[in-house]
Simulated assay, not measured.
Amino acid sequence: MTDPLRLVIFDVDGTLVDSQGDIVAAMTVAFQDVDQPVPDRATILSIVGLSLDHAMARLAADRSAATQARMVEGYKNAYVNLRAKTGAADSSPLYPGAREALEFFKRQDNLLLGVATGKSRRGLDKLLEAHDLEHMFVTQQVSDHHPSKPHPSMIETALAETGVETQNAVMVGDTSYDMDMALAAHVSAIGVGWGYHDVSLLSSANRIVSTFAELPDAVAGAWKATAA
């Protein structure tokens, strides 16, 4: 019997790349520009994965919608400027083992790769170009076209674009938003231990890995579990 078509969907920030330096710096600028106290690093990183407007609404919940909108634009401008100074590859480096894991999966028959990220289309394009990953992912879901995580829209669209059934898909991410999105979309979820949410928050994960070297076995285990 022919193996079914399968799909591994990756989150980006905190999963494939470590972009926390620019995220914290850009958020600091956004708050300072409107003379607001800057949240601490842990609080800022806790919203990574959400679409920017949702993230800002959480961080600046006591500010007006107009002020939050100004802060969103301030963040975007600061992030672009920071990325331009150092280049996306240096400001958001791949985690150790990320490229090797992606290349391993890319070589597998009947397996497709996708992205589901809170980044904008522009931000994702810049990042993929910087790391020479433009052709790695056959489906790319960004914040421009979807409700914020953990709404399942990104995964549902990825499944529709690729024709993969829910039991043959897995979501890999570092935040509770990724895990809860996978749960809502009825796909398996693998949490990673090197990202921006403590592993204790990844309660919806089917499995948690601590290195990219563990990921192939974890993904294979997800297929076995759904086939059982």
Results as ranks from 00 to 15, higher is better:
residue 136 M to Q: 07
residue 113 L to I: 06
residue 2 T to C: 00
residue 59 L to M: 03
residue 183 L to C: 04
residue 86 T to Q: 13
residue 74 G to H: 09
residue 209 V to D: 04
residue 67 T to Q: 14
residue 143 S to C: 08
residue 100 E to S: 14
residue 91 S to C: 10
residue 5 L to R: 15
residue 125 D to L: 06
residue 32 Q to K: 14
residue 18 D to Y: 07
residue 99 R to K: 13
residue 117 T to H: 02
residue 179 M to C: 01
residue 211 T to F: 01
residue 60 A to M: 03
residue 50 L to G: 03
residue 87 G to A: 06
residue 35 D to R: 13
residue 82 L to Q: 09
residue 70 R to H: 11
residue 48 V to Y: 11
residue 218 A to W: 00
residue 202 L to W: 13
residue 23 I to V: 15
residue 23 I to E: 07
residue 174 D to V: 15
residue 85 K to L: 13
residue 135 H to E: 13
residue 207 R to W: 04
residue 213 A to K: 01
residue 63 R to P: 02
residue 56 M to C: 09
residue 71 M to E: 08
residue 204 S to A: 15
residue 54 H to S: 14
residue 119 K to W: 05
residue 28 T to G: 11
residue 28 T to S: 13
residue 119 K to F: 08
residue 215 L to F: 01
residue 152 P to N: 09
residue 134 E to F: 00
residue 91 S to L: 01
residue 217 D to E: 02
residue 190 I to G: 02
residue 14 G to C: 10
residue 168 N to G: 00
residue 216 P to Y: 00
residue 2 T to E: 11
residue 81 N to K: 14
residue 212 F to C: 01
residue 223 W to N: 05
residue 140 Q to N: 03
residue 216 P to A: 01
residue 178 D to P: 04
residue 202 L to R: 12
residue 55 A to W: 09
residue 169 A to W: 03
residue 27 M to V: 14
residue 169 A to D: 06
residue 152 P to F: 11
residue 128 L to N: 08
residue 162 T to R: 03
residue 17 V to T: 15
residue 223 W to K: 04
residue 199 V to R: 14
residue 5 L to F: 02
residue 111 L to Y: 03
residue 158 A to S: 14
residue 35 D to M: 06
residue 173 G to R: 09
residue 29 V to G: 00
residue 172 V to N: 06
